[in-house]
C-alpha cells in the first residue's frame, strides 16, 4: 500500500488483485453463499479503496482500514440489492411479457408490446430496449448515457411498470 501511495503502478495492481480476492471472501463469509452481485461489491470496494488510499497511515495496521471500507461498501451494495428486489425484479417481468409460451402471458400480443414500448418516454424506451433487446449491461448503458447505474435501474423499473400498466398484464412481482 505504501508503494501504491507513492504511485508505483505494479505494486498497486498487485494490491488490487489481492484485495479483489479478499473482498470476495469477505462478501461470501457475510452472506454465506455465492451471490450474483459479488462483483459489484468488489468493484465498489476497489474504487473506494482507490479514493481513500491517501488516508492509510503506515503506523496503523492495514486490515482494519481495508475491512472498514469493504464492510461499508458491502452494506451499501446489499441494501441497494434488497431495495431493487423489493421494488422490482425487472428480469422476471420482461421474460413473462415476451414469452408466448408462458400461460399467464400468452395473452400478450407482441405487437402490443412494441406499441407500448413506442409510447414510453424516449429515455425509458432506450434503456428498456438496450437491456432487453440489445442485451447491453447496465454498466455500459450508464456509461453511454452518462447516468449512474442506479439511475439506469430506476428508469428501467419505471419503464417496466409503465409497460405492465399499458398492457394490462397482471404480473406477480418476485
Amino acid at each position: 500500500m505504501l508503494r501504491a501511495q507513492q504511485g508505483e503502478e505494479e505494486a498497486y495492481a498487485e494490491l488490487l488483485v489481492l484485495l479483489t480476492a479478499a473482498t470476495r471472501s469477505y462478501v461470501r463469509s457475510r452472506v454465506g453463499r455465492l451471490v450474483p452481485w459479488i462483483d459489484d461489491a468488489v468493484q465498489e470496494t476497489l474504487v473506494a479503496v482507490h479514493h481513500a488510499r491517501h488516508t492509510f497511515d503506515d503506523r496503523r495496521p492495514f486490515a482494519p482500514w481495508f475491512y472498514a471500507i469493504a464492510r461499508n461498501r458491502f452494506v451499501d451494495v446489499l441494501r441497494r440489492e434488497q431495495r431493487v428486489r423489493q421494488h422490482e425484479s425487472p428480469g422476471s417481468v420482461w421474460p413473462e411479457l415476451a414469452s408466448a409460451t408462458d400461460d399467464r402471458t400468452s395473452r400478450v400480443d407482441m405487437d402490443a408490446v412494441q406499441q407500448a414500448l413506442a409510447s414510453l418516454p424516449p429515455r425509458q424506451r432506450e434503456i428498456v430496449e438496450a437491456i432487453k433487446l440489445r442485451d447491453e449491461s447496465v454498466r455500459d448503458i450508464a456509461a453511454r448515457l452518462d447516468m449512474t447505474m442506479t439511475s439506469v435501474k430506476v428508469t428501467a423499473h419505471r419503464g417496466y411498470r409503465t409497460l405492465r400498466r399499458l398492457l394490462g398484464v397482471d404480473l406477480r412481482e418476485e
Partner: peptide, 19 residues
C-alpha cells in the same frame, strides 16, 4: 434484469493507470 458483469480486470487497469 441481466446480471451486470463488471469487468474487474478493466476496472483494476483503470485504477492503476490513475494511481
Amino acid at each position: 434484469m441481466k446480471s451486470e458483469r463488471p469487468d474487474l480486470p478493466l476496472t483494476i487497469a483503470r485504477l492503476v493507470r490513475s494511481a
